[in-house]
Simulated scan of single mutants.
Amino acid sequence: MPVFSPYADRLSRIPIERHEVEVRGGTTAYWVYGPSADSDTDQSAQDAADPKTEPLTVIAVHGFRGEHHGLEPVLAYLPDVRVIAPDLPGFGETPPLPGRTHDLDEYAGWLQDFTAAVAPGAVILGHSFGSIVSSAAVATGLQTPRLILINPIGAPALEGPKGLMTRLAVLYYELGAKLPAKLGTALLRSRLIVRVASITMAKTKDPVLRRFIHDQHDTYFSDFADRDVLRDAFVASVSHDVRAFAPRIAVPTLLVAAQQDDITPIEAERHLATLFPSAELVEIADVGHLIHYETPAEAAGHIRRFLRVPVAQGR
């Protein structure tokens, strides 16, 4: 039986187009939400109100084991913003990059090349692992007027309040990589383990919303190409965090953090904000690492306001 989405009605009113582009020897699938590139109706109205407002095109980078659908609840509250949402290589409908190790350097390079191909100068948004990929790409040369990080990974996962769970996850992915291929892949796609992870991350008490979150994870959390790319991406996700890149990111940055995040404690997010030359931290209460599912309207509200703040002269 189909699971009710609290955001389906809003999303149904937003135009969505699927596209593909060749990047780094592979084909990247991506979706464009909202106004098309040749539609200037909404942007003209905004520019008339504030001529300093930047063109509202955002590239949204999803998190580990997810794909572009995960950020749709946030996009549902940004109908006047043109958002380009790719599936990361090896996840969703984007196959792995041929002959490459999917480590952080590769993902950062892919994002730089993808942005150059489809929307040079776009605002970059990253969630969770996507926050690491986006920060690494911007710190190493990706040109963007602004950076938005939702549930940023602001400290090593092994040091967070759920450090033990992360260590168990390391063992899980190591076992999945070492077992015979069929058995290892089955373990990595285990619905039971996916459900345990979903229950652990969800903070809402709303049964309808919880059912939706679990269905989203059941549907998309195992949509990876193979266990090799999954292992590579997992290693990248737990071996890096945004702190290493923050001092080299000069553009205005918005951090949307959760006060109950089990992966990065809010104290670490507050420290992370101090490492950027120009960053704003907003905190959302009563939510954990699933801001994009549980409080998308609030996150989108902060994003809309941030996108309308004029960039300081000289940037």
Rank of each mutant, 00 (worst) to 15 (best):
T144V: 06
A225C: 04
K203Y: 08
A297R: 07
P79E: 06
G63K: 02
L147C: 12
K178D: 07
A37N: 13
T140R: 12
D232G: 03
K178I: 09
L75W: 04
D206L: 06
A258R: 03
G25H: 01
R24N: 08
V208Y: 00
D228F: 12
S5H: 03
V309W: 02
G176M: 10
D87Y: 10
A300G: 11
S131I: 06
I263L: 15
T219C: 05
H102L: 05
V21G: 00
G25L: 05
L307M: 15
G141M: 02
V123E: 07
P310A: 07
V123N: 06
L11P: 13
A45P: 01
T101I: 14
A157F: 13
V282L: 01
E106G: 01
M201R: 11
S198L: 02
R308L: 08
V81T: 15
T28R: 12
Y293H: 13
P73Y: 06
A177G: 00
P95T: 05
L175F: 00
R308F: 12
G121C: 09
D223M: 06
L97T: 05
G34P: 15
A236M: 11
L209I: 00
I84N: 10
D261N: 08
G314V: 08
V61C: 11
V123R: 06
H292Q: 13
E280V: 07
D80I: 01
S134Y: 05
G314W: 08
S44H: 05
